[in-house]
Nucleic acid binder design. Sequence first.
DNA 1: CATGAATGAGCCTTCATTCAT
DNA 2: CATGAATGAAGGCTCATTCAT
Lengths: 205, 205, 205, 205
Amino acid sequence: MSATAERVARSTVNKFAQRRQMLAESALKAIAEQGYAETGLRAIAQHSELSHGSLHYYFEDKDDLIALAVWNYKSECARRYDDIIATARTPEEFADRFASTMTGTLRDEATLHRLWYDLRNQAMFNTGFRDTIVAIDDLLQEMVWAVVSRFAELEGVAPALTPPLAYALFDGVFQNTLIRFLRGDTQAVENLSIEVRGLLKSALA
Amino acid sequence: MSATAERVARSTVNKFAQRRQMLAESALKAIAEQGYAETGLRAIAQHSELSHGSLHYYFEDKDDLIALAVWNYKSECARRYDDIIATARTPEEFADRFASTMTGTLRDEATLHRLWYDLRNQAMFNTGFRDTIVAIDDLLQEMVWAVVSRFAELEGVAPALTPPLAYALFDGVFQNTLIRFLRGDTQAVENLSIEVRGLLKSALA
Amino acid sequence: MSATAERVARSTVNKFAQRRQMLAESALKAIAEQGYAETGLRAIAQHSELSHGSLHYYFEDKDDLIALAVWNYKSECARRYDDIIATARTPEEFADRFASTMTGTLRDEATLHRLWYDLRNQAMFNTGFRDTIVAIDDLLQEMVWAVVSRFAELEGVAPALTPPLAYALFDGVFQNTLIRFLRGDTQAVENLSIEVRGLLKSALA
Amino acid sequence: MSATAERVARSTVNKFAQRRQMLAESALKAIAEQGYAETGLRAIAQHSELSHGSLHYYFEDKDDLIALAVWNYKSECARRYDDIIATARTPEEFADRFASTMTGTLRDEATLHRLWYDLRNQAMFNTGFRDTIVAIDDLLQEMVWAVVSRFAELEGVAPALTPPLAYALFDGVFQNTLIRFLRGDTQAVENLSIEVRGLLKSALA
DNA sequence: CATGAATGAGCCTTCATTCAT
DNA sequence: CATGAATGAAGGCTCATTCAT
């Protein structure tokens, strides 16, 4: 067990863990701005209150840091629709709230979503934080499936596709819209709202 | 006009252009293996017959080289279904050939497709080869649209979605399958064949 | 007088001095394993019960710590033959016991002797713990001289060489054998026993 | 075969090899001054005409550089007595010239010999350039043996010790004298001349 | 007393780029 | 044209040391 891992284990809610969270957030900001390939530990440190030397006190290495950063953000993303699933009462309300939440996060957190796709790509080449990426991917797929299932339930029918396909379709639409948005195509985001509703419907039996 | 651009302009079909093509291919191989972030010019040169010092004679910079490399490959990808569009006589034949071609290229050229997604992501951060990426994206969207349109025609109906949405859906399914495939999920590729047929049908009015 | 020196002075037999001894032993183990150049204070602290932050409470700096460590070990080494000198009754017994003791320590404490030569070398470059090294060297020379003198006495003749030369010869043979031993030459250690006897004899008038 | 190894192989007498030699000399100077542990590649580069970045063009890594540096110097050292062996006509002349040459090199190149002992020690811990060190050690032992053999021949007798022992004795005396000399004991060097003569004689049957 | 948090200089190495030949 | 030599900034990372708690 490495020194860092040991410190992690000592307690989950202490100063050490808090610092890790704080640094993970700084890393998130830095990578969201510049991308994984262009972001060094020094740049990450400059987004935080600490020096770059301290990063190695809190993290095994760069991958360890990035893994926590993306996990923090994306695992929270995967819970973003829980409330809608739990409280929406009609298919219309459900679709409305789902579409607008998705549109909102795309618009407001575009660089963070960009970062996610960046890291998911890196994981195709590096093994460093691949496990974390795979875990998040699973989480997101579960989330999409929960959405589709609940919508089907509200409509009183069964879903007509598999969880991986559902994830692939929503992810494809989301990612393509994000790319267009970042290229300056604001119309794309507005279309997303409509497209997502269409996807929901076509996901039913 | 830079020195390199000038040389490009002198002639489109000469030794200079041929060398550029050759080097672009080498770059393709290198980046397909290691990814954009991890591939240096030395690695690219080692995949070619020239020295790394020569790269800057033929290319403005690294981005210039990569832009040509990805363009070479992907613009050809976008023509991969032209024959099917032109010669398929029934919706069934069309869907079969389309699905099997797509499945085949995913399987056989997985690292090259991985590279494409890598570079498309980089283009969200760097402006270097962004224009090329956008142009390819447009080409791919046109291609998908041509596929959907022709399938609709063979079925005697009109498409029920927009070109960007069609592209987003097929791209999403393709990318997600690629990721699964590279993670060792061989089942995913077989499912792709079925999913793609389903997508084609659900694209109709 | 520095803060640490002051604490040292307060008492020679107290908790403070004991802690120093304990840490010096930990340092000994660590450096014996990895060598001076590769051993950090963290590694030393991990061989002890204290944290690396505490080292600077007990020691001025790294050199201070190392000086004590090597002194502890080597000044004891220099007393290792006292008993033989005091109790051996014949030249043969003397030579036998001397040779076997030397061979034994070389074999059993090879890494500690390696450390000694490492530090004696460092002292040719750094002034940090040079004084300690010189003091130990003097001790060792006295020890060798005591050995040679006593052997001569038992033989009833006078030594035929100077103390520095005697030390140089025994030290040379010991060090060269150690090097060979650490390179895997086990024969070298067995030869040492014979060579040392020869050296003793040739040291006589 | 690595890029550097390839370049080495292309030709032994070219610009590349010459640069390596030049840099090896610079490394020699730097390490001779500061010692292995304290000498970084930047310091070595500052002793040369090149930048530290260039070192990696000429050498695989730091060990590669150091191995060449010490080999250059010490393999030449091992040939330093060849002329005496070949041309001395009487035991007296032989002993005189041998002693004075050894004394001279100790005095004039003290820091270089110090470096040798430093690196030989490092080789007890690191495997990096161990092979080179062992090869040099063998060379030196052969040299010492050639000296002893020739002296015996001139005296018309046979040597009375083994090559490893002969090496150990001369090496021990040389190293101990060097240490004393570097500590400011100038008398030691003068004694060396006498001691070496004594060693030669006692090496005979 | 003892800790662990924090620093910043320094480590070896890689890189895109420039340029004389 | 093409090369290989050379650069210097930046990469991730380690280190002895300091100091508030």
